[in-house]
C-alpha cells in the first residue's frame, strides 16, 4: 500500500492539495494511506523550502505547488 504525505502548515494551497490527492485516490480505487503533516519540524526533515509538498513513499514528488489531479493519478499508479 502506498503511503502519501501532504506537507504543509495549513495554508489554503495545502488544503487544496489535500483535496486533489484525496480525489485522485478515490479515482484509482486503490487503498492508499493518506497523511497530513502540519508540524514544521517534521516538514523540514524533507529538506523542502516551499510548501505544499507531496511525499509518496518517503520520496518528495511535488514541492511548492498544487498538483493536478491527472498528475497525482500518474504518481499513485507508478
Amino acid at each position: 500500500m502506498k503511503h502519501v504525505k501532504i506537507l504543509g502548515t495549513g495554508c489554503p494551497k495545502c488544503k487544496r492539495t489535500y483535496a486533489v490527492v484525496e480525489s485522485a485516490v478515490q479515482q484509482i480505487g486503490q487503498e492508499v494511506r493518506l497523511e497530513k503533516v502540519e508540524d514544521i519540524m517534521e516538514i523540514m526533515q524533507y529538506d523542502i523550502i516551499s510548501t505544499p509538498a507531496v511525499v509518496v513513499d518517503e520520496v518528495v514528488e511535488i514541492k511548492g505547488r498544487i498538483p493536478s489531479e491527472s498528475e497525482m493519478i500518474k504518481l499513485l499508479r507508478s
Binding site: 504543509g8 502548515t9 495549513g10 495554508c11 494551497k13 495545502c14 514544521i40 516538514i43 523540514m44 529538506d47 523542502i48 523550502i49 516551499s50 510548501t51 511548492g64
Partner: peptide, 12 residues
C-alpha cells in the same frame, strides 16, 4: 506565500 515563509527561512 506567507505560509511558506517558515520552511523558506529554515531552508535558507
Amino acid at each position: 506565500c506567507s505560509c511558506s515563509s517558515v520552511p523558506l527561512f529554515i531552508g535558507f
